[in-house]
Design a protein around this nucleic acid. Structure first.
Lengths: 276, 276
DNA sequence: AGCGATTTGTACGTATGTATG
DNA sequence: CCATACATACGTACAAATCGC
């Protein structure tokens, strides 16, 4: 084939070598989750882990379905479910007759999940979160609607500094019945951990519904102070509700974003395959 | 069951009656797509159509998997795929032991796909689109990156009036090799149709990847005029790239949104099940 | 252009597990 | 404890797209 006329994207054209997972997969699958996740989820996670650990790299071709069926104790259908999940999450690309190819993912997902900015070059700004406060919420609001009127809701206030450029203020609402760790953990412990890890450590439930909305609102005095704008300046309020496929709300988040010159990247869906 | 203590959401509590699709489904499935879509997609679409036509309403319980298997010529696995697709798209909710329940969708999706606002009551603002212009794009930009440097790109400029409240200006970029209809159709024909219908009529390919980002930008003179703000006013630039699961870009859209008091609802994913 | 070999995609039938009422 | 209904899993078969010869 004439490569000069090969206009396919790099991550397709370059994929000729099939990555060897013969050593990795059996070990990765032996380390079972507790309680045991479905087999196709275990396989999906193992493959994502292989990506995280650099065993599989962007542009690599994964073993074929039948190969995976042979090197795992799973059936073809299970393997297919696993790889299909990876495709729906955007990790890989599949074509009949070609194979399964790992898409370029630019950079691994870091904290926090739903508020990442890129500069003009497309690089993500590093985020430096700091915890300001944690309170038991007693009044009603959007949080109680989505998390349930009867539940015990904690609110965690954070300030997310975006690489010394600007700051975002965050109200994070969570039901402590579902995530008791947010009540028991000391505030200082939040600093060293990150929210995504905490959420996944507790739930294991796949995220499959994201409800997001945006409004312009005037900044309150408190919020204005934290994000460095004048009081009543118009800022963006970004509301995020995260649900499982069975419609349980995992958490609700409000992000106050001042005017800035960076691109806010909006997540579409993740299907619970993000590696903790 | 004591309804006073029943704190479950309406759409679960109310679902006691199983909707009768015995008449509708066989007829709906007989009207096959051209070219034939996979059976599980056909079934999904038939169920969505039942929703559109009011045969199934919000809160209704769908027939069980085994019932659907009996009333259709399809196997259990096929039925499961179809209903699972509806769940991942957010149309229905499923629980073992209970059944499949149609979620409240407030209002059917109308035009345009990615820019819908709600008022304080949660109702969508009606949208009145008008076509301003259609040009062949020759220069490079984000559009050429995502649609391909070599492709013939058309740009359609539109003004989307949001229920007499405010207006949004839109640049819609599409590859005419993929959607020749955007070149052949007269501008006046766009008014009566809507974009979503046009896109689905042509492709049939399921949408599965949405890439969305937001930036603050100063409004150009032209755009400022259309959306009724002063030149150089800071407006929101909402960029949307829509791809299939095989990574083909369907279209790219830029939306210029003036400051306003409504909620911009952000789509997460639709999986191609939206009924045309 | 044609023909296998490969690989994903769809589909069927069956069996068993788990949550709910 | 039982019936219902969704969830997972297995094994098989064939179709459709792609590639190399």
């Amino acid at each position: 084939m004439d490569t000069l006329l090969d206009s396919r994207p790099d991550h397709i054209r370059a994929a000729t070598v099939i990555v060897d997972l013969g050593d990795f997969l059996p070990k990765a699958l032996a380390a079972t989750d507790r309680p045991a996740a479905p087999k196709h989820i275990q396989l999906s996670r193992a493959l994502v882990r292989a990506l995280d650990e650099g065993i599989v790299r962007e542009g690599d071709k994964l073993p074929s379905e039948s190969d995976l069926t042979e090197m795992t104790p799973y059936s073809l259908g299970t393997v297919q479910k696993a790889v299909k999940g990876l495709m729906q999450s955007g990790f890989v690309m599949r074509r009949p007759g070609i194979g399964t190819i790992v898409k370029p993912w630019r950079k691994r997902l870091t904290e926090p999940l739903h508020c990442r900015f890129t500069n003009k070059e497309g690089d993500y700004l590093p985020v430096y979160p700091s915890i300001l406060n944690r309170t038991l919420v007693t009044d009603a609001g959007p949080w109680s609607v989505v998390l349930g009127e009867t539940s015990q809701i904690f609110r965690i206030d954070r300030c997310l500094r975006m690489d010394d450029e600007f700051s975002v203020f965050s109200h994070f609402f969570v039901d402590i019945d579902r995530y008791p760790i947010f009540e028991t953990l000391q505030i200082k412990d939040f600093e060293s951990n990150n929210f995504k890890k905490l959420m996944y450590a507790q739930s294991g439930d796949p995220i499959s519904q994201l409800r997001q909305s945006l409004t312009f609102v005037p900044a309150s005095a408190e919020i204005a102070g934290h994000i460095g704008v004048e009081e009543k300046t118009s800022v963006l309020l970004f509301k995020v509700t995260v649900r499982t496929s069975s419609d349980d709300t995992l958490y609700y988040q409000e992000l106050y974003i001042p005017p800035n010159n960076f691109d806010l990247h909006i997540d579409s869906h993740l299907d619970g395959l993000v590696s903790p």
